[in-house]
Simulated assay, not measured.
Amino acid sequence: MNDTDPHGDDAPPSTWKHGDALGANGTPEGKGSSIVARAVTINRPVDEVYAYFRDFTNLPTFMENVERIDTLDATRSHWVVKAPAGKTVEWDAVITEEEPNRSLAWTSEPGADVANSGRVEFRDAGLRGTVVTATIAYDPPAGIVGKLIAKMFQREPAIQARRDLRRFKQLMETGEIATAAMTRKQREEEMA
């Protein structure tokens, strides 16, 4: 075990060898029966990575299925996210824990289309930059059937978490996201 993590493991909480992934260092309040965790190392200082992520209006720039996030106040936000079959799901989220440049945890408020909670940790990796670990717990709409449908349409959180973190890394390191497809912003600029 190391000094910064009582579990002695740098892996995402869902893969810890010791301890409960949904405990104090996992996802808050345990909202969500399915857990997804991914990590990426971004070659930027921890304060830059945290600051960009903490401004929730930035998240749609690299989170492919997030249409928009409206900041309601210092700790609450409203999320609109693409779902399979051209639908969207929405929820209000509240920050349950925040330690600047180290971690950010949230949970959805009652009435969410998709009950969820999560935690993103930012760890200084010295000359390598910042290790970002995202752990999300969620209840898929329509249970297991909804999860299978989401997977078929590539909208399942486990698939998206990996892709979104890869895009976040590209954006933070190069200032852009490499893509073969035209982005919404590019389409709008071309049509203007």
Results as ranks from 00 to 15, higher is better:
1 M>K: 11
9 D>Q: 09
10 D>A: 11
13 P>R: 07
18 H>F: 13
20 D>L: 10
23 G>Y: 02
23 G>W: 04
25 N>R: 13
26 G>N: 02
27 T>W: 03
27 T>V: 14
27 T>S: 11
32 G>N: 05
35 I>Q: 07
40 V>S: 06
43 N>H: 10
46 V>R: 11
53 F>H: 07
55 D>Y: 02
55 D>F: 03
55 D>W: 01
61 T>P: 03
66 V>F: 08
67 E>Y: 07
75 T>Q: 12
86 G>L: 00
94 V>C: 03
97 E>G: 13
101 N>V: 08
101 N>S: 08
103 S>R: 13
105 A>Q: 05
107 T>G: 12
109 E>M: 14
110 P>R: 04
113 D>W: 07
114 V>Y: 11
115 A>R: 11
117 S>Y: 06
117 S>I: 02
118 G>E: 04
124 D>A: 12
127 L>W: 06
128 R>G: 06
133 T>G: 08
135 T>S: 15
137 A>P: 00
137 A>E: 01
139 D>T: 14
143 G>K: 01
154 Q>V: 08
159 I>M: 11
164 D>G: 09
165 L>A: 07
166 R>I: 09
166 R>F: 09
169 K>N: 03
171 L>Q: 00
176 E>Y: 11
177 I>V: 10
178 A>K: 09
183 T>R: 00
184 R>T: 14
186 Q>S: 13
187 R>A: 15
189 E>M: 14
192 A>V: 13
